[in-house]
């Protein structure tokens, strides 16, 4: 195994607020290989978005503060780079797409100007070459009649097309890594399916690694090689996509899967099984396993001591879980009981 493309070590991010310090990201570590697609699932307050904003230098400091950790991208710690160096990485080797394409695009600039900008800054292309490349990119993200659309403004594009333009900008410089944060959440379900299909094709054509952040387990199932489940600023579970969905080992992952109704109608007439309670207040996160107060399988130890993220016994290699309880054993006993 060579050096991973991205290697995050013990990243810890906090925010100062009126009510005290918000512990948003609490010592997370994970690595991403070249060409790998990592799906990160979590709810609001899980730290899934904050940790990528922090590593790209996009959180305001203060009130934000990176307390500890390293973010090694191709062996270089992004957290030690100055603004200039970081700007060269952002939009160059790392492309990113956020939820709301309208607020990410400049309404007063044509689409051409916005795609050309990173090409000139990062690749040093001249005007004509950059424009040719911009046209190729709009074709690549399947915007029909690209030559004419190039000189239009963002408001002349539909929501789905604007997100395609954002993707074109993000991949303009052939990044090694694409980060998408709830990139399809604001879109209609048919447009979401098209964008996901597009990203899968682009991945095959360009070969970039992807970090795809979402709250939707269905989206993750369709796009990820590896899935990582985050809660209260920690990683509770991580593993190959098939193994994680078939054999979840964190009670939180299981709870998320069970709280979803089945599109095929299997849950009809049965009561949904929500996760009771609410996520913790991150100004005062619980000691121990942060999910313990909502977990009916929690043991006394869960409330005292935070479990480390470690290989789940009997699961596929690389399927990790942070839990003191043995979910597989507990479920087997439940099934055996009358």
């Amino acid at each position: 195994m060579g050096v991973p493309l991205l290697d995050i070590r013990d990243l810890t991010v906090a925010f100062a607020s009126d009510g005290g310090t918000v512990h948003a990201v609490n010592g997370i570590s994970y690595a991403l290989s070249e060409g790998e697609t990592l799906g990160i699932v979590g709810e609001s307050g899980s730290g899934k978005s904050v940790h990528v904003l922090a590593m790209l230098g996009l959180i305001p400091m203060p009130p934000g503060r990176i307390e500890r950790g390293e973010v090694l991208f191709q062996g270089r710690d992004l957290l030690t780079l100055d603004d200039r160096a970081l700007r060269r990485v952002r939009g160059g080797e790392i492309g990113f797409v956020f939820q709301d394409p309208m607020s990410s695009l400049n309404p007063a600039m044509t689409v051409a100007a916005q795609i050309v900008e990173p090409l000139r800054i990062h690749l040093g292309l001249d005007g004509a070459a950059a424009r040719r490349r911009a046209l190729e990119l709009l074709d690549l993200v399947r915007i029909p009649d690209a030559a004419r659309r190039l000189d239009q403004y963002p408001h002349e594009f539909s929501g789905g097309q604007r997100q395609r333009v954002m993707i074109a900008i993000a991949i303009a410089c052939k990044p090694k890594l694409l980060i998408a944060d709830e990139a399809t959440t604001a879109l209609d379900v048919t447009i979401q399916a098209e964008i996901i299909g597009l990203v899968r094709e682009l991945k095959r054509e360009i070969g970039m690694a992807i970090v795809w952040i979402t709250h939707d387990l269905g989206v993750v199932a369709g796009i990820a090689d590896t899935v990582q489940v985050m809660y209260a600023g920690r990683i509770l579970e991580r593993g190959p996509v098939d193994d994680l969905f078939a054999d979840p080992r964190s009670a939180y992952t299981l709870g998320l899967l069970r709280s979803l109704p089945d599109l095929a109608g299997g849950t009809k007439g049965r009561r949904l099984q929500p996760i009771e309670g609410a996520p913790p207040d991150m100004r005062d996160p619980p000691v121990g396993d942060p999910f313990a107060p909502r977990n009916r399988y929690a043991t006394e130890r869960c409330f005292r001591e935070a479990p480390p993220l470690a290989q789940a016994p009997g699961a596929a290699p690389g399927h990790l879980v942070a839990a003191w309880y043995d979910l597989r054993g507990l479920l087997a006993r439940e099934r055996a009981a009358p």
């Binding site: 379900v189 048919t190 979401q192 399916a193 098209e194 199932a221 369709g222 098939d242 969905f245």
Partner: peptide, 23 residues
């Protein structure tokens, strides 16, 4: 039909078979 076909299903096996059909 188009609407229902686009709903992502939390099952990677189903998703792999289905995704190619959306377009």
């Amino acid at each position: 039909r188009r609407l229902l076909a686009a709903v992502p299903v939390p099952d990677p096996v189903v998703e792999r078979q289905r995704v190619s059909a959306i377009g």
